[in-house]
Design a binder for these strands. Structure first.
Lengths: 199, 199
DNA sequence: TCCAATTTGTAATGTTCGCTACAAATGTGG
DNA sequence: CCACATTTGTAGCGAACATTACAAATTGGA
């Protein structure tokens, strides 16, 4: 059984470049021409490997999640709920201003609103943001069960609040806010967490 | 001197419709065909009145600012810095989930990232978000001078924090968060404000 | 009543969009 | 070395995009 001509590009490397283009220009602002140029391949290769522009986005989102998985695990592994919040907020401030990446968060920059007919792009991004929020919520439920958080604590509300912080920081970063500014927001956001968790 | 054929549409009414389209689909997701259909005019009328798609966006942004001016004035007129924050946060929670408008905030949904060549759309939106932040900053500087905020308070940091809250709520609203959820975020955000302003 | 000025509707402009046919190239298995 | 399977590069597809030419329509002023 013949195997065929081997692929001449590294799919993960190409996805990194595609991710960066979507991150910087959003789904609709990223053109196939720009994507193929950044990925170092041409259109037929892109479509053979990823099916469509939307398929490429989903693959890039998967890769994004994968790259952030270690960070999220580090956050969730924190010994206390407070430390979870602290790691998330300050880690996010640093990640969203990492000069190695476009500013902000792909799940926000990628596209909050899209053209008629592309509704599932914003909803896909929203769904992935919700996944992160859910991880935090479960972590806080556990903290509550463990007595780390008081019985009056609201895991859903805390998780949603932190979700709003990371999204808000993403918007600030997109506007050019620097690391110091985002850390300052994180510092203030921690105060709310402390009040709400009875610290 | 001849005056010419009178315009057959109401420019403000048309701008309201354009604003809604930009709000719901973002700058790049809004097509001229969709805009003209919503505005009830045809393309030449649009271009005669607003010059270009970008000119229409700016006009829609002006109208948006105008509509929110009364709200911002109500916020800034609050007797204390705390009340400024409270009015802003809860008012924003309600505005961004007002069923009369698309969810979220036009200054966020409009487009955080755009295609190459349209860079001034995101920067225009960022500039208008910065204007709002500046209004808050000046208000907090005044509060500090008046002794309403302690001498240790940081007006810039507080304004930026609130800016992050409204942006974050906008993202949550775009994901389908309801009014109750946003008010819960506002409640938590107030706790940070209270801690940071020594209440 | 004709002229000047402006808007309106139709129809089209050139460009760019996402996507794909097709043939040449490159590999594996027999 | 041959047959097959897959990828690559070129070139182009139809559709949609923002924008505009142009002529008919509508007004006020001379």
């Amino acid at each position: 059984m013949a195997i065929g001509r081997p692929r001449a590009f590294d799919a993960d490397k190409a996805l990194d470049e595609a991710m960066e283009v979507f991150w910087r220009h959003g789904y609709e602002g990223a053109t196939i021409a720009e994507l193929t140029a950044a990925m170092g391949i041409n259109a037929p290769s892109l479509y053979a490997a990823f099916g469509s522009k939307e398929g490429l986005l989903k693959a890039a989102l998967d890769r994004y999640s994968g790259k952030r998985a270690a960070f999220m695990q580090h956050v969730l592994d924190a010994p206390t709920a407070r430390e979870v919040a602290r790691r998330l907020l300050f880690g996010t401030a640093d990640l969203q201003t990492d000069p190695a990446n476009p500013p902000g968060c792909l799940l926000v920059q990628g596209g909050l609103a899209c053209a008629t007919g592309h509704e599932n792009v914003p909803s896909e991004l929203a769904s992935r943001r919700a996944d992160n929020e859910e991880l935090l919520r479960e972590r806080f439920k556990k903290a509550k069960a463990d007595g780390d958080l008081p019985a009056t604590a609201d895991p859903t509300g805390l998780a949603r609040y932190l979700s709003a912080q990371t999204a808000g920081m993403g918007v600030l970063a997109a506007s050019g806010a620097d690391r110091r500014a985002l850390r300052q927001v994180a510092t203030l956001a921690m105060k709310a967490f402390d009040s709400a968790s009875g610290a």
